[in-house]
């Protein structure tokens, strides 16, 4: 077991945002977190990376409680990919990815770090943009750059916060493909918060459906993405079809509320 989340609670003042969340993540596994807006998907991911400090519960990384680890130690194990980054000041794509080496280096970056960055850029097929400014490239390319940074970090676990939400369908598929294939080829585990239920169904091994800060359903995509679950969690009437392997969802209409 790579990562174990036990009874995690998080809240601001009196409002609980996450309640009693437990989950596990295996090596090489891709787990999707789905749920309506405000269900706590992003909050959970940030709690796992200790960007937010949970109010209760524990998060074990290879059996060690991360509250007993330094930020730097956590950064060597887990890489976080934010939804978007708005940069105030310019940075090249290369420098953005090089920043992923931060947990591993001193003041000076070595030739080895440069080579690693180049390798990651090549792997994601974005090396031609290396010297361009991060703000100048398209949203899909930016997302790949952010994933590249997490890969340069050489973490065993990737935490991705809605990596596909601003992308066209080709980039959505490309990004999910990348996540899936590095999970398989490099033994990296990933937790992906994602809105698109069809992408979630296609690319994840297991799904965690949150609603109102609690776990609503958990299991393989087939058992989580049911007509009943979607109706109750999202308030949406949907058709769930299957291509024999994975379910696919056609949303029809919002459930009428009286």
């Amino acid at each position: 077991m790579k990562l174990k989340v036990k009874n995690v609670e998080f809240g601001y003042n009196s409002t609980l945002v996450l309640e009693n969340i437990s989950m596990e993540l295996d090596r090489s596994e891709v787990v999707g977190i789905v749920g309506p807006n405000g269900a706590g998907k992003s909050t959970l991911i940030r709690c796992i990376d200790r960007i937010l400090t949970p109010r209760g519960g524990s998060i074990l990384l290879d059996g060690t409680d991360i509250s007993k680890m330094t930020r730097m130690e956590i950064a060597k194990e887990m890489g976080y990919v934010p939804q978007t980054t708005t940069r105030v000041f310019p940075a090249t794509v290369f420098d953005t990815v090089l920043m992923g080496r931060r947990p591993h280096l001193g003041w000076k970056s070595s030739d080895e770090d440069v080579d690693r960055v180049l390798k990651v850029l090549e792997l994601l097929g974005i090396i031609e943009f290396a010297m361009r400014d991060f703000n100048e490239i398209s949203g899909g390319q930016q997302q790949k750059v952010l994933i590249a940074r997490a890969l340069a970090q050489e973490a065993d676990i990737l935490l991705l916060d809605e990596p596909t939400s601003n992308l066209d369908i080709r980039h959505q598929l490309e990004v999910m493909d990348i996540i899936k294939s590095i999970a398989r080829s490099k033994g990296i585990s990933a937790i992906v918060a994602i809105h698109d239920l069809n992408l979630a169904s296609r690319y994840t091994d297991r799904l965690l459906m949150l609603n109102g800060g609690r776990i609503f359903a958990v299991g393989d995509p087939e058992s989580v993405l049911t007509v009943e679950n979607i109706r109750r969690a999202y308030g949406v009437e949907a058709l769930v079809k299957s291509d024999g392997e994975r379910p696919y969802i056609i949303p029809v209409r919002p459930v009428k509320t009286r």
Binding site: R71, M72, A75, D95, M99, P103
Partner: peptide
């Protein structure tokens, strides 16, 4: 300097890169 670079990408990213 590295910490400042990381913080330029946002507090969350900086934290995830090990910056306090």
């Amino acid at each position: 300097s590295w910490d400042f670079n990381a913080m330029g990408a946002g507090d969350e990213t900086a934290k995830s890169l090990g910056v306090n």
